[in-house]
Protein backbone atom coordinates (compact mmCIF):
# COMPACT_ATOMS: atom_id res chain seq x y z
CA UNK A 1 0.00 0.00 0.00
CA UNK A 2 2.97 2.28 0.65
CA UNK A 3 3.62 2.57 -3.06
CA UNK A 4 0.14 3.92 -3.74
CA UNK A 5 0.54 6.51 -1.02
CA UNK A 6 3.79 7.56 -2.63
CA UNK A 7 2.20 7.70 -6.07
CA UNK A 8 -0.46 9.95 -4.62
CA UNK A 9 2.19 12.24 -3.13
CA UNK A 10 4.21 12.43 -6.34
CA UNK A 11 1.13 13.31 -8.36
CA UNK A 12 0.27 15.90 -5.75
CA UNK A 13 3.65 17.57 -6.29
CA UNK A 14 3.30 17.09 -10.03
CA UNK A 15 0.01 18.95 -10.06
CA UNK A 16 1.89 22.01 -8.81
CA UNK A 17 4.21 22.04 -11.82
CA UNK A 18 2.29 24.89 -13.40
CA UNK A 19 0.71 26.91 -10.57
CA UNK A 20 -0.47 29.54 -13.03
CA UNK A 21 -2.43 26.98 -14.99
CA UNK A 22 -3.89 25.56 -11.78
CA UNK A 23 -5.24 28.93 -10.69
CA UNK A 24 -6.18 30.00 -14.20
CA UNK A 25 -8.35 26.95 -14.72
CA UNK A 26 -10.05 27.47 -11.39
CA UNK A 27 -10.99 31.03 -12.27
CA UNK A 28 -13.77 29.58 -14.38
CA UNK A 29 -15.74 29.13 -11.17
CA UNK A 30 -16.21 32.94 -11.05
CA UNK A 31 -18.39 33.28 -14.16
CA UNK A 32 -20.24 30.06 -13.27
CA UNK A 33 -21.14 31.27 -9.80
CA UNK A 34 -21.99 34.72 -11.12
CA UNK A 35 -24.44 33.22 -13.61
CA UNK A 36 -25.96 30.99 -10.94
CA UNK A 37 -26.28 34.03 -8.69
CA UNK A 38 -28.22 35.99 -11.31
CA UNK A 39 -30.31 33.00 -12.34
CA UNK A 40 -31.41 31.98 -8.87
CA UNK A 41 -31.90 35.55 -7.67
CA UNK A 42 -34.51 35.98 -10.37
CA UNK A 43 -36.06 32.60 -9.66
CA UNK A 44 -36.38 33.21 -5.94
CA UNK A 45 -37.80 36.70 -6.60
CA UNK A 46 -40.33 35.33 -9.08
CA UNK A 47 -41.34 32.64 -6.65
CA UNK A 48 -41.93 35.32 -4.04
CA UNK A 49 -40.72 33.19 -1.11
CA UNK A 50 -37.41 33.02 0.72
CA UNK A 51 -37.34 29.25 0.61
CA UNK A 52 -37.97 26.64 -2.08
CA UNK A 53 -38.29 23.03 -0.91
CA UNK A 54 -36.15 23.69 2.15
CA UNK A 55 -33.41 25.72 0.44
CA UNK A 56 -32.97 29.47 0.83
CA UNK A 57 -31.21 31.59 -1.79
CA UNK A 58 -27.85 31.69 0.05
CA UNK A 59 -28.08 27.95 0.71
CA UNK A 60 -28.69 27.33 -2.98
CA UNK A 61 -25.59 29.28 -3.94
CA UNK A 62 -23.38 27.58 -1.37
CA UNK A 63 -24.78 24.25 -2.56
CA UNK A 64 -23.89 25.08 -6.15
CA UNK A 65 -20.42 26.24 -5.16
CA UNK A 66 -19.63 22.86 -3.59
CA UNK A 67 -21.21 21.00 -6.51
CA UNK A 68 -19.11 23.02 -8.99
CA UNK A 69 -15.95 22.46 -6.97
CA UNK A 70 -16.49 18.70 -7.11
CA UNK A 71 -17.27 18.79 -10.82
CA UNK A 72 -14.43 21.13 -11.81
CA UNK A 73 -11.77 19.35 -9.82
CA UNK A 74 -12.65 15.76 -10.65
CA UNK A 75 -9.88 14.30 -12.79
CA UNK A 76 -10.65 13.44 -16.42
CA UNK A 77 -9.56 9.88 -15.85
CA UNK A 78 -11.47 8.34 -18.75
CA UNK A 79 -9.68 10.74 -20.99
CA UNK A 80 -6.31 9.97 -19.43
CA UNK A 81 -6.75 6.24 -19.94
CA UNK A 82 -8.07 6.54 -23.45
CA UNK A 83 -5.24 8.90 -24.46
CA UNK A 84 -2.74 6.43 -22.99
CA UNK A 85 -4.31 3.64 -25.03
CA UNK A 86 -4.32 5.75 -28.17
CA UNK A 87 -0.70 6.86 -27.96
CA UNK A 88 0.58 3.58 -26.53
CA UNK A 89 2.05 5.04 -23.34
CA UNK A 90 -0.18 2.66 -21.39
CA UNK A 91 2.65 0.16 -21.95
CA UNK A 92 4.45 1.73 -19.01
CA UNK A 93 1.54 1.75 -16.60
CA UNK A 94 0.97 -1.90 -17.38
CA UNK A 95 4.48 -3.18 -16.90
CA UNK A 96 5.19 -1.90 -13.42
CA UNK A 97 4.51 -3.99 -10.34
CA UNK A 98 1.37 -2.24 -9.27
CA UNK A 99 -2.30 -2.69 -9.77
CA UNK A 100 -3.40 -0.70 -12.79
CA UNK A 101 -6.63 0.49 -11.18
CA UNK A 102 -5.06 1.41 -7.86
CA UNK A 103 -2.31 3.25 -9.70
CA UNK A 104 -4.91 5.40 -11.42
CA UNK A 105 -6.84 5.84 -8.22
CA UNK A 106 -3.79 7.17 -6.38
CA UNK A 107 -2.70 9.49 -9.14
CA UNK A 108 -6.17 10.83 -9.85
CA UNK A 109 -6.66 11.63 -6.18
CA UNK A 110 -3.31 13.39 -6.17
CA UNK A 111 -4.40 15.40 -9.17
CA UNK A 112 -7.67 16.42 -7.54
CA UNK A 113 -6.65 17.78 -4.16
CA UNK A 114 -5.02 21.08 -5.07
CA UNK A 115 -7.47 21.74 -7.85
CA UNK A 116 -10.34 21.27 -5.42
CA UNK A 117 -8.65 23.47 -2.85
CA UNK A 118 -8.17 26.36 -5.26
CA UNK A 119 -11.68 25.96 -6.65
CA UNK A 120 -13.22 25.94 -3.19
CA UNK A 121 -11.19 28.95 -2.06
CA UNK A 122 -12.06 31.08 -5.06
CA UNK A 123 -15.68 29.89 -5.12
CA UNK A 124 -16.17 30.50 -1.39
CA UNK A 125 -14.66 33.98 -1.59
CA UNK A 126 -17.12 34.97 -4.31
CA UNK A 127 -20.18 33.34 -2.80
CA UNK A 128 -19.38 34.75 0.63
CA UNK A 129 -19.18 38.22 -0.87
CA UNK A 130 -22.43 37.74 -2.80
CA UNK A 131 -24.71 36.11 -0.22
CA UNK A 132 -22.86 36.05 3.09
CA UNK A 133 -21.29 33.39 5.30
CA UNK A 134 -21.96 29.67 4.80
CA UNK A 135 -24.82 28.24 6.87
CA UNK A 136 -22.79 26.18 9.34
CA UNK A 137 -19.20 25.46 10.29
CA UNK A 138 -19.96 21.77 10.68
CA UNK A 139 -20.54 21.66 6.92
CA UNK A 140 -16.82 21.92 6.16
CA UNK A 141 -15.49 18.72 7.77
CA UNK A 142 -18.53 16.61 6.86
CA UNK A 143 -18.49 17.73 3.25
CA UNK A 144 -14.76 17.23 3.00
CA UNK A 145 -15.11 13.60 4.02
CA UNK A 146 -17.97 12.92 1.63
CA UNK A 147 -16.03 14.66 -1.14
CA UNK A 148 -13.44 11.91 -0.86
CA UNK A 149 -16.25 9.43 -1.37
CA UNK A 150 -17.53 11.49 -4.29
CA UNK A 151 -14.17 11.40 -6.05
CA UNK A 152 -13.78 7.71 -5.40
CA UNK A 153 -17.16 7.21 -6.99
CA UNK A 154 -16.15 9.42 -9.89
CA UNK A 155 -13.00 7.35 -10.18
CA UNK A 156 -14.99 4.14 -10.49
CA UNK A 157 -17.30 5.52 -13.15
CA UNK A 158 -14.55 7.23 -15.17
CA UNK A 159 -12.30 4.21 -14.93
CA UNK A 160 -15.19 2.15 -16.23
CA UNK A 161 -15.41 4.40 -19.27
CA UNK A 162 -11.62 4.45 -19.52
CA UNK A 163 -11.50 0.66 -19.68
CA UNK A 164 -13.83 0.76 -22.65
CA UNK A 165 -10.91 2.43 -24.41
CA UNK A 166 -9.12 -0.92 -24.36
CA UNK A 167 -11.66 -2.00 -26.94
CA UNK A 168 -13.05 1.09 -28.66
CA UNK A 169 -9.99 3.35 -28.13
CA UNK A 170 -11.92 6.61 -28.25
CA UNK A 171 -14.30 7.20 -25.37
CA UNK A 172 -15.25 10.85 -25.78
CA UNK A 173 -18.88 9.97 -26.52
CA UNK A 174 -19.22 7.99 -23.29
CA UNK A 175 -17.49 10.77 -21.40
CA UNK A 176 -19.98 13.27 -22.80
CA UNK A 177 -22.93 11.17 -21.74
CA UNK A 178 -21.44 10.62 -18.30
CA UNK A 179 -20.88 14.32 -17.79
CA UNK A 180 -24.43 15.21 -18.79
CA UNK A 181 -25.84 12.53 -16.50
CA UNK A 182 -23.77 13.97 -13.68
CA UNK A 183 -25.09 17.44 -14.53
CA UNK A 184 -28.73 16.48 -14.51
CA UNK A 185 -29.04 13.51 -12.16
CA UNK A 186 -26.24 14.70 -9.89
CA UNK A 187 -27.88 18.04 -9.26
CA UNK A 188 -25.10 20.19 -10.60
CA UNK A 189 -27.22 22.87 -12.24
CA UNK A 190 -30.37 22.54 -10.19
CA UNK A 191 -30.42 21.09 -6.66
CA UNK A 192 -32.32 17.80 -6.73
CA UNK A 193 -34.72 19.23 -4.11
CA UNK A 194 -36.30 21.34 -6.83
CA UNK A 195 -37.16 18.30 -8.97
CA UNK A 196 -40.56 16.61 -8.86
CA UNK A 197 -40.77 13.92 -6.18
CA UNK A 198 -40.61 10.92 -8.52
CA UNK A 199 -37.53 12.24 -10.35
CA UNK A 200 -35.87 13.06 -7.02
CA UNK A 201 -36.40 9.48 -5.92
CA UNK A 202 -34.83 8.09 -9.09
CA UNK A 203 -31.92 10.53 -9.06
CA UNK A 204 -31.11 9.92 -5.41
CA UNK A 205 -30.92 6.19 -5.95
CA UNK A 206 -28.32 6.59 -8.71
CA UNK A 207 -24.60 7.05 -8.08
CA UNK A 208 -24.52 10.54 -9.62
CA UNK A 209 -26.39 11.99 -6.66
CA UNK A 210 -23.84 10.58 -4.22
CA UNK A 211 -21.18 12.34 -6.25
CA UNK A 212 -22.43 15.91 -6.24
CA UNK A 213 -25.80 16.31 -4.57
CA UNK A 214 -24.86 14.36 -1.44
CA UNK A 215 -21.80 16.33 -0.34
CA UNK A 216 -23.17 19.68 -1.55
CA UNK A 217 -26.50 19.29 0.24
CA UNK A 218 -24.69 18.21 3.37
CA UNK A 219 -22.70 21.43 3.30
CA UNK A 220 -25.78 23.62 3.62
CA UNK A 221 -27.64 21.53 6.17
CA UNK A 222 -25.03 19.44 7.92
CA UNK A 223 -26.49 16.81 10.23
CA UNK A 224 -24.90 13.60 11.38
CA UNK A 225 -27.74 11.37 10.05
CA UNK A 226 -27.51 13.04 6.62
CA UNK A 227 -23.75 12.59 6.73
CA UNK A 228 -24.04 8.91 7.57
CA UNK A 229 -26.66 8.21 4.95
CA UNK A 230 -24.58 9.97 2.27
CA UNK A 231 -21.55 7.95 3.29
CA UNK A 232 -23.55 4.73 3.27
CA UNK A 233 -24.95 5.44 -0.18
CA UNK A 234 -21.46 6.20 -1.47
CA UNK A 235 -20.06 3.05 0.12
CA UNK A 236 -22.71 0.86 -1.53
CA UNK A 237 -22.10 2.32 -4.97
CA UNK A 238 -18.33 2.21 -4.60
CA UNK A 239 -18.52 -1.43 -3.62
CA UNK A 240 -20.77 -2.37 -6.54
CA UNK A 241 -18.77 -0.38 -9.07
CA UNK A 242 -15.41 -1.56 -7.75
CA UNK A 243 -16.46 -5.17 -8.25
CA UNK A 244 -17.73 -4.47 -11.76
CA UNK A 245 -14.57 -2.53 -12.49
CA UNK A 246 -12.29 -5.37 -11.46
CA UNK A 247 -14.23 -7.84 -13.57
CA UNK A 248 -14.23 -5.52 -16.58
CA UNK A 249 -10.53 -4.87 -16.19
CA UNK A 250 -9.71 -8.58 -16.18
CA UNK A 251 -11.88 -9.11 -19.25
CA UNK A 252 -10.74 -6.09 -21.25
CA UNK A 253 -7.02 -6.39 -20.63
CA UNK A 254 -6.73 -9.31 -23.02
CA UNK A 255 -8.41 -7.25 -25.75
CA UNK A 256 -5.90 -4.47 -25.55
CA UNK A 257 -4.15 -3.68 -28.81
CA UNK A 258 -1.41 -1.13 -28.57
CA UNK A 259 -0.86 1.60 -31.07
CA UNK A 260 2.46 2.80 -32.31
CA UNK A 261 6.00 1.56 -32.14
Amino acid sequence: MKKYWHLFKVQLINSLAYPGELIGRSLVIFPFMWIFYQLWKVTFAANGSTEINGLTFPMTLWYLMIAETIELSRPRLANTISEAVKDGSIAYTLNKPYNFLLYHFSTSMGETIFRALVNALLGSALVWWLVGAPPSLLGWPLTLLTMLGAWTLNFCLSAFIGLAAFIVEDTSAFQWIYQKMAFILGGLLIPLDFYPEWLQAIAKALPFASMTYGPARLFVSPTIPAFLSTLAMQAIWILVLAILLTITYRRNISHLALNGG
Binding site: K3, L7, N14, A17, Y18, D87, G261
Partner: peptide, 25 residues
Protein backbone atom coordinates in the same frame (compact mmCIF):
# COMPACT_ATOMS: atom_id res chain seq x y z
CA UNK B 1 10.26 2.08 -24.75
CA UNK B 2 12.35 4.58 -26.66
CA UNK B 3 9.39 6.42 -28.04
CA UNK B 4 7.55 6.96 -24.78
CA UNK B 5 8.76 8.49 -21.55
CA UNK B 6 8.34 6.65 -18.27
CA UNK B 7 9.89 9.41 -16.19
CA UNK B 8 7.40 11.89 -14.85
CA UNK B 9 7.57 14.71 -17.28
CA UNK B 10 7.27 17.70 -14.96
CA UNK B 11 9.38 16.36 -12.15
CA UNK B 12 13.13 15.99 -11.82
CA UNK B 13 14.32 12.45 -12.56
CA UNK B 14 15.37 11.94 -8.94
CA UNK B 15 11.68 12.09 -7.91
CA UNK B 16 10.77 9.33 -10.36
CA UNK B 17 13.75 7.29 -9.15
CA UNK B 18 12.57 7.56 -5.56
CA UNK B 19 9.02 6.74 -6.63
CA UNK B 20 10.23 3.66 -8.51
CA UNK B 21 12.08 2.64 -5.38
CA UNK B 22 8.73 2.54 -3.59
CA UNK B 23 6.93 0.88 -6.48
CA UNK B 24 9.49 -1.90 -6.69
CA UNK B 25 9.34 -2.22 -2.90
Amino acid sequence: FGQRPQLWYHLPAIDTFTLFGKIYE
